[in-house]
Amino acid sequence: MSVFFYSRQGTFIHKLDPRAKLACLLLLFTAAAAASSLAALCLITVSLLLMFFASKSLRSLARMGPLFIFTGLMTFLLWMLFYEGKDVLAGFGPIVIYKGAATGSAINTLRFISMLLSGLLYLSVASLEDLSDAMILSGVPYKVAFTVSLSFRLVLIFVSTGYTIVEAQKVRGNNAEKGTVVKRIKAYVPLLIPLIINGIKKAETLTYALESKGFSPDNKIDIREKHSFKIWDTAAILLSAAVAACAIASGLK
């Protein structure tokens, strides 16, 4: 099972230009951060959930759902406890709940959750190639886009190596999940050393491999012909921009 969320689908959201996907993500982040009314944030959250449905990405939502619900509950609880208003609604010893705490907490919780949903939606519809191409087409130097892309690819190798090391050490009786905090911290040493050595070996061979294949940090590649901006891409950006503008306007009132 991949640790990432992208799955190849033929939906119109998947078919958007990589630049459009990235621009929509940034605009949705802006909308979530700027919105300050409960109605606006509910609308953004519901729209995002509908987009998960439209992009056939409900599996990603199911995978992250429990974590998001837990995060949402904790955020709501913390805001409720520390919200400071003018009029006291109820008091339980040192804990004082003010009037408007529930609404304020809901607004801030939905703001964070809609940001997380926007991020998850992007991860579900944009492939690694999309991210790399969007960066290059947006003017990010090729060497930076290449490094980010290479890092993502290496993560899959290191995660697999990490699991193997953890299992191998468990068989040898080294369990980092038991004992006092100091014991557990020390138990991580035999887990991390093979991973670091493995990484360093890879760094040595990878440098030669890249150079032998003609890679240079000064290389430039032209991928403009690979992607073309269509009317749907413009429409998606305009729609996201309208949502962000409405959210900002709602925040100004």
């Binding site: 640790v3 490094t147 980010v148 290479l150 890092s151 993502f152 290496l154 993560v155 190798i157 290191f158 995660v159 190596t161 990490g162 699991y163 090391i165 953890v166 980092a176 991580y188 887990l191 991390l192 991973l195 670091i196 990484g199 360093i200 890879k202 760094a203 990878l206 440098t207 890249l210």
Partner: peptide
């Protein structure tokens, strides 16, 4: 390459460890 390896090791230890 060091940037990529550092990024990958850092990110990949977040899950199995």
């Amino acid at each position: 390459v060091i940037i990529a390896i550092t990024a990958a090791i850092y990110a990949s230890t977040l899950i199995p460890f």
